[in-house]
Design a protein around this nucleic acid. Structure first.
Length: 430
RNA sequence: GUGGGCGUAGCCGAGUGGAUAAGGCAUCUGGUUGUGGCCCAGAAGACCGUGGGUUCAAAUCCCACCGCUCACCCCA
């Protein structure tokens, strides 16, 4: 039989065998956000296109070539969310959250859509854990947000992650830096790659990001934004670094860290991993003190990050991190003959009402086939009901983990007895 | 958008011009009219990615397209 339909390019099915990783990541996220005092706010999967054009910025790759945009039946311009921040800031403004105690600490998880060429660790639909803190420009909030990421990765058991930190300045100091950078590169036009000549006019900050060998000496001698930060931005970074050093956090100041969204101001950071392909960022974020105002709200500083769960799961596999398995049923019902099947279905319901995780085989297969499948589930017990037992008003409880000891129980009230028997038992993990 | 690699059952994979396209895993059935794991036997499952070309003969050689994958760009 030829397979007709495949998952669309850039999308993946998260199969049952992968779910333990995902469940564990979500469990850890839940613990971390509780520990840090964050509230969940879910925003729609699609928004008005203008939100992202205004928020993320024209000229960014996301807006220029990566948005899944369409016109709905009502003629509205709609875009599948390519990031979380703009939507969450929109919700903050829409619901008057400036009236809440500030800052407001929010998180969410869910799918993100970007029309990109697929490669290892990069999908057209991926899932992010997103954190945003709105309403404070205190550098301690920068520390707080970075700490959420630190704690998450530490709780997941990762080693060898590299935290990268930089400042992108602000609208007051960044133009002077860009001007200096452009001026510097204009003197080296003949030496840099073709892409860099294009970046020079389109997006000068990205010049620092070039990986072409011949451009590296030029980058190394390029002016640093650190030397151009205004006193406010310089002080903000210095204070944050003081806090980080005080906590003994290892991080690298990366002069070349520039992020692809227009709204960033001051702090930007990423977390890098090795061994998951060329797309090595498992977390990226920064401060966006001008975004709320750009979106029509009161001036409201903010900072946040997104972290890609697909990449986190890749890294867990790469690092061999163990996660809890899927619980097996506690008991599997096995029957022989139609009368027994009908009675077994009643017992199945009774067991579930007693909170016993119970399953039954279908399609009237042979006892052997039913036991074989019961064994495969990893269930510690089977309950076998055949004509003999039914006639005697009994049912056989059979242990499945060892050599299969069998014990006859009265059929009436069997659910209660089994529930009591299993109640004290360990949770069974396949 | 650009470049590299790869397309043989659900999965892995042999086959490099010659007849009905190996084998393993998984699935189903049986060996035990009512008892799982191990073992054994059998069954089912493939328009060899699609289309065209070369040839007496193509899974195999050539071309195009499609798909997957990795990398560039950029990002999570």
């Amino acid at each position: 039989m030829a397979i007709v339909f495949l998952a669309p390019r850039g999308t993946v099915d998260i199969l049952p065998e992968d779910q333990p990783y995902w469940i564990h990541v979500y469990d850890v996220i839940r613990d971390v956000v509780r520990l840090f005092g964050y509230s969940r706010l879910d925003v729609p999967i699609f928004e008005e296109t203008g939100l992202y054009v205004r928020g993320v910025g024209e000229g960014t790759d996301i807006v220029d070539k990566e948005m899944y945009s369409f016109v709905d039946k009502g003629g509205r311009e709609i875009t599948l969310r390519p990031e979380f921040t703009a939507g969450l800031v929109r919700a903050y403004i829409q619901h008057g959250m400036h009236t809440l105690p500030q800052p407001v600490k929010l998180y969410t998880t869910g799918p993100i859509f970007r029309y990109e060429r697929v490669q290892a660790g990069r999908y057209r639909q991926h899932t992010q854990f997103d954190v945003e803190v709105l309403g404070s420009s205190d550098p301690a909030v920068d520390l707080e947000v970075m700490s959420v990421a630190w704690h998450l990765f530490s709780q997941l058991g990762f080693g060898g992650l590299a935290f990268q930190l930089n400042s992108t300045g602000c609208p007051r100091c960044r133009p002077a830096y860009i001007e200096a950078l452009v001026h510097y590169y204009e003197g080296h036009q003949g030496e840099v790659c073709e892409d860099c000549r294009r970046r020079l006019v389109r997006n000068p900050l990205r010049l620092l990001d070039c990986k072409v060998d011949s451009c590296q000496p030029i980058i190394n001698n390029a002016p640093h934004i650190m030397d151009y930060l205004c006193s406010e931005c310089a002080e903000h970074l210095a204070t944050l670094r003081g806090y980080l050093d005080g906590l003994g956090r290892a991080y690298t100041i990366n002069h070349r860290l520039v992020r692809g969204l227009d709204y960033y101001t001051k702090t930007v950071f990423e977390v890098w991993a090795q061994g998951i392909g060329a797309q090595n960022a498992v977390c990226g974020g920064g401060r966006y003190d001008g975004l709320a105002q750009e979106l029509g709200g009161q001036p409201t500083p903010g900072i946040g990050f997104g972290s890609g769960i697909e990449r986190i799961v890749m890294l867990m596999k790469e690092q061999g991190i163990q996660v809890p398995g899927i619980p097996a049923p506690q008991v599997v019902l096995v029957y022989h003959g139609e009368a027994c099947k009908a009675r077994a279905l009643q017992l199945l319901t009774e067991l579930r009402e007693q909170h016993v995780a119970a399953t039954i085989g279908f399609d009237d297969r042979s006892l052997r086939a039913q036991l074989r499948n019961a064994n495969r589930t990893g269930a510690p017990y089977a309950l076998v009901l055949g004509e003999q037992e039914l006639a005697a008003g009994e049912i056989v409880l059979q242990g499945m983990l060892a050599d299969g000891t069998r014990e006859a129980l009265p059929l009436g009230g069997a659910a209660r007895v089994v529930a009591a028997r299993l109640g004290a038992g360990a949770t069974c993990v396949k």
